[in-house]
């Protein structure tokens, strides 16, 4: 079976800006795939290349084994949930959802039925006669989702669809999207800059930076075994230790990453550091330690004793928590 989406050395340049630079990418059918990266890292451009809104400057794109270059968006069985939803303001919710069916010439009665079923799937039954302007952000997001899914696309593209929602709604939608994706078996490609969202939802993640993919892997792999300093720092803001410090702490002159939650403070043993800052986060307290001039952050679970600023402490970690990334990461 061919890949749902495959990129072979795909580049998209805007003038001298290399938005996407020689990217290789394979997305399995039925996979929940996340593209994670800071803004301007090329993840949205990759999504637009799959949708057909952008054409690659060079390279080859296949969607389910078929060449996609030069194919306009309206001939791709791929649908997009846009970042700001892009609902048609002059159409009511039912007509928005049924738009793709209407374009394909599906009869009025059938598309009304299918639109209502799609609205039910996203938990908005009976909202068909409202205008998009009368809906809340979360509801619009669901309508956009229904509008895309009603066409039964081979690949569903989601461009930071949860970005505009508040935290509580976002967590709820993350859960629902995951359930929906598993139930429908459609390949989801999800763009986000929120590493927590990518980790919690995706089967696999590609981490983007400056138009390139830094690492592809399962959330566990990306989180536990980052390949580069960028990945370690961006995914869960790990401590990135210089080769000098790693050598002093572990005896190996390589870059390494050490998760803040893996560090324990203790009275004896371990290494010495000075507390230079504390901030209370609710479920935990973040300490900033100074270890011979390098900053290391430590997450202490709430409830325990928190050392004061300026105090000298000793810290240690489980032997497998320090992840080595090579001398030139």
């Amino acid at each position: 079976m061919p890949y749902a989406v495959s990129f072979q050395q795909v580049s998209r340049h805007f003038g001298s800006v290399r938005a996407v630079d020689a990217v290789d990418l394979e997305i399995e059918p039925g996979e929940f795939f996340a593209m994670l990266g800071p803004s301007g890292s090329g993840k949205t451009t990759c999504l637009r290349l799959i949708a057909g809104f952008e054409q690659p400057t060079s390279g080859h794109i296949e969607i389910f084994g078929e060449t996609a270059e030069g194919v306009p968006p309206y001939r791709r069985n791929v649908n997009t949930v846009f970042q700001d939803y892009a609902l048609f303001p002059h159409l009511n919710v039912a007509d928005n959802v049924a738009y793709g069916l209407m374009i394909r010439g599906v009869g009025k009665a059938e598309r009304t039925r299918e639109a209502e079923a799609a609205l039910e799937m996203v938990k908005l039954p009976g909202y068909g006669s409202r205008k998009p302007g009368q809906l809340s952000g979360g509801q619009r997001q669901r309508v956009a989702l229904a509008r895309a899914l009603v066409n039964k696309p081979k690949v569903l593209l989601l461009d930071e669809p949860l970005g505009a929602l508040d935290l509580k709604l976002r967590e709820q939608m993350q859960e629902e999207l995951k359930v929906l994706q598993k139930a429908l078996g459609i390949t989801f490609v999800f763009v986000t800059h929120d590493q927590g969202e990518a980790l919690s939802m995706a089967d696999r993640i590609a981490v983007f930076n400056e138009g390139r993919i830094m690492q592809t892997g399962t959330p566990e792999e990306i989180y536990r075994r980052p390949k580069t300093r960028f990945v370690a720092d961006f995914v869960g803001s790990s401590n990135v230790l210089s080769p000098q410090l790693t050598e002093r702490l572990a005896g190996v002159a390589e870059w390494s990453s050490l998760r803040p939650e893996d560090i324990r403070l203790g009275a004896e043993g371990g290494h010495e550091a000075t507390v230079t800052g504390t901030s209370f986060l609710g479920s935990a307290t973040r300490l900033t330690l100074d270890v011979t001039g390098e900053k290391i952050s430590v997450l202490l679970p709430s409830g325990g004793r928190v050392p004061e600023q300026g105090k000298s402490v000793r810290f240690s970690w489980n032997s497998d928590a320090l992840h080595l990334m090579g001398a030139k990461a």
Binding site: G52, P73, Y74, N79, F82, F88, N151
Partner: peptide
């Protein structure tokens, strides 16, 4: 993006 959404929907 409304024009893109329309093209996206076929």
């Amino acid at each position: 993006n409304l024009l893109e959404a329309s093209a996206d929907l076929g």
